[in-house]
Simulated scan of single mutants.
Amino acid sequence: MPQTKRTPAGDALSDLILDLFRLNSLLFTAGDRLVAGLGLTSARWQILGAIVAAERPQPVAWLARDLGANRQNVQRIVNDLDRDGLVSFETNPHHRRAQLVVLTDKGRQAFDAAMRLQSPWVNGLSEGLAVKDIETMGRIVAALREKLESSVEPDARA
């Protein structure tokens, strides 16, 4: 079976994807270190952020969708957050089994403390980078995310 050659854009995007994989790992490691003193991990912080960003309490499945994450993994972390008093569950009037995840006061305090640590860190990380370049990268990442969210799964047989 002949192998399809990549276009120059496909080559460049492949290189970028590999760099993004490495960056994602480095960001999670740095985030873990940043918030370790608060009893958080990057994953817990990310979920608290999704809860804060939501306009109203949501079930775990919706949080997972918003994060582009696996529902079971998000459920496990939310259960840990509940055990530690950072979130609680409320009855969902629209679905008996899919409870709503709600940030507690303790959870809000932990998230706010994490964001206070994040500000100087991200400011330092952005030093030397042009705002226009960062915004361009943001648009590229958003466009790629939208393409992936709206596309069918890749065919492994191709």
Rank of each mutant, 00 (worst) to 15 (best):
G138P: 14
F21S: 11
S151T: 13
A53W: 03
A30G: 05
A142H: 13
V152R: 06
M115C: 08
A9S: 08
P8C: 06
N70D: 15
R56E: 12
L148Q: 15
I77C: 00
T29M: 09
L40H: 02
A12D: 11
S119P: 04
L27G: 00
T29C: 04
R33Y: 05
R145E: 11
K147A: 11
W62S: 01
T7C: 05
F21N: 12
A143F: 07
M115N: 12
L144H: 07
V131E: 10
D105H: 10
A69M: 13
W62C: 02
T29E: 12
L81Q: 07
Q109E: 14
A53D: 08
G128N: 03
D19W: 10
D112F: 05
L144P: 06
N123F: 15
A61L: 02
M1K: 14
S88K: 13
D112C: 04
A43W: 07
P93T: 06
Q58K: 09
A43Y: 10
R44V: 02
R65E: 08
E153C: 03
L67K: 03
I77D: 00
E153V: 10
P154Q: 06
L18F: 13
I140K: 11
K5H: 13
D155Q: 08
L63Y: 03
A156E: 14
L13I: 15
G128K: 04
L13R: 02
I17W: 13
L144M: 14
V35W: 01
R157S: 14
T7Y: 05
T41F: 04
G10Y: 00
Q58A: 04
A61N: 12
L129R: 10
A53G: 12
V141S: 11
G128R: 04
L13E: 06
L13G: 00
V122A: 09
P8F: 03
M137H: 12
D15C: 03
Q118P: 02
Q58N: 01
A110I: 00
S126V: 00
P120S: 08
L48S: 05
R157C: 03
A114T: 06
K5Q: 15
R33L: 09
V74D: 02
D155C: 04
L103K: 05
V141T: 12
D66K: 14
G138L: 09
L38Y: 09
L86E: 06
A143E: 15
P59N: 01
L38D: 08
T29P: 03
W121H: 07
D80A: 09
N79T: 15
Q118C: 12
V35S: 02
G31P: 04
L100S: 06
L144D: 08
V52I: 12
D105V: 07
D112H: 04
A110C: 05
I77E: 00
I140G: 03
T136C: 02
D112Q: 08
G49C: 09
D66G: 08
D66Y: 03
V52M: 13
V131L: 15
M115D: 07
D19G: 12
A130Q: 15
S126F: 10
D133W: 01
L81F: 07
